[in-house]
Amino acid sequence: MSGESRATRAALYAGGFIGPFGGGMVTVLIPELRDAFDVSSSTASLALTSYLVPFAVLQLVSGTLGERFGRRRATRVAFVVYALASLWAAAAGGFGVFLVARAVQGAANAFTTPLVLAALADATEDRDLGRAMGTFAAVQTAGVVGAPLVGGLAGALDYRLAFVVAALAALVLAWKSAPPGEARAATPGGAAAVRPRLRDALTSRTRWTAGAAFLAFFAITGLGVVVALRAGDAFGLGPTARGLLLAAFGAAGVVAGRPAGDLTDRRGAVAVAVCGALACVVLLPLLGLTGGALGLGLVWLATGVASALLWAGLNVLTVGAAPANRGGAVSVIGAFKFAGNALAPVCWLALYDAGSELAFAGAGAVCLALAAVVVRAGGASVSRA
């Protein structure tokens, strides 16, 4: 691989960082936001939902729009808007204004991750696709690592610092990680290029993979807020310690991401993703049964490894779901993925209030359904009927 190709891939990988970072950095800041704005814990959790809902909804169309208007232009504008919204959130004097700023952050990021992932797939040969997707998942998981860690460190001083850091990161990415080229589907025989359409993205595999992505984020990634609450309620951990504990999940994903991608190239996307889902069926209920903070951290670490397997496989299914509109398919699947993450705090916190074991056992049961949906996605068509 040439130096230019390596630089291109490195920039694309970097572009995958900001989405999970922006969504997850407030996971450990719920108590600080509650106190700063004088609201309840459940109301403070809207800081997660207000980001993730527009992030998810706009991804239904953002990939297709980005393909039409140009990946480079769309991502650069989105990163700049995200930076401005982050500074707005840091300066917000009321909770309503803060939630609006979070919503703008989410809307901006809807135009980054899908286009960056589609560009990475275009730049990768099929034999190396698993490794590239596993590495991308590892970079996104690095965002999961960095989010609670930065959030926890900022919370110990001033929660606003987390948003200032996010703004600086977005400005760097606007400069460095814009996709280098545009994708256009071609007519048979290599005739004139055609403009991607949303309906071209809606293949059978897109629909089933979207369902799997929804369940994965709903049951696994979205459970982080409950893990953080249990760490505080049951074991008395402060914001920095909670951030470090949650970072174990992401750290495991960062380390395991590339090997999981290599395994996907050898064993197949479906087999590796199902392995990750079934491991979570066992691991997630254990999170509600551990008797100490160390045990909770170790189980969450193992869950991060299982999640790396799951996403290495799912990302390969995602970028191959609709060849006629790859960016559109990636963004549609991303919409369902982050819709699951947005819904998770509301559902799991309600179960947690009824009994912490119920939330973790319920998440484990969802992962059993997830494994079945992954199998169905692997056998689905990639052509629109």
Rank of each mutant, 00 (worst) to 15 (best):
S2D: 14
E4Q: 13
R6M: 12
A7H: 12
A7M: 14
A10R: 15
A14D: 10
G15Y: 03
G15Q: 06
F17I: 01
I18R: 04
G23I: 02
M25C: 03
V26I: 14
T27H: 02
T27R: 00
A36H: 08
F37D: 06
D38R: 12
S41F: 06
A44R: 00
L46T: 02
A47N: 04
L48V: 06
V53Q: 04
P54D: 09
A56P: 06
S62M: 11
R72I: 00
R76M: 11
L84R: 07
W88R: 08
A91T: 15
G93T: 09
G94H: 08
F95M: 09
F95H: 08
F95Y: 15
V97M: 11
V97Y: 03
F98K: 04
A101G: 15
A101M: 10
V104M: 12
G106W: 03
G106S: 12
A107D: 08
A108H: 05
T113S: 14
P114D: 11
L117W: 07
L120E: 07
A121T: 10
L129A: 04
A132F: 06
F136A: 10
F136N: 12
A137I: 02
A138D: 08
A142F: 15
V144S: 01
V144R: 02
V145I: 09
P148L: 00
P148M: 03
L153E: 01
A154G: 00
A154R: 03
Y159Q: 03
A166S: 14
W175M: 09
A178V: 03
P180I: 05
G181I: 08
A185F: 13
A185S: 13
T187R: 15
T187N: 09
T187P: 00
G189L: 13
G190A: 13
A193E: 15
R195D: 14
R199F: 11
R199I: 14
R205M: 11
R205K: 14
R207P: 00
W208T: 02
T209P: 05
T209Y: 07
A213Y: 10
A213L: 09
L215P: 05
I220G: 03
T221S: 01
G222L: 01
L223M: 12
G224S: 06
R230F: 00
D233N: 05
G236E: 03
P239H: 02
P239Q: 05
R242V: 02
G243C: 01
L246G: 00
F249K: 02
G250A: 07
G250H: 04
A252C: 07
G253S: 12
A260D: 06
G261H: 04
T264K: 06
G268Y: 11
A277P: 04
C280E: 14
L284M: 13
L284A: 08
L286D: 04
L286I: 10
G288T: 07
G288K: 06
G291P: 09
A293K: 02
G297I: 03
L298M: 12
W300F: 13
A302P: 07
G304F: 00
A308D: 02
W311N: 08
L314C: 04
V319M: 11
A322M: 12
A324H: 09
G328E: 06
A335M: 13
K337M: 11
K337W: 03
A339D: 05
A342P: 03
A344S: 15
W348Y: 13
S356V: 11
L358V: 14
L370C: 10
L370V: 10
A377R: 04
A380R: 04
S383Q: 12
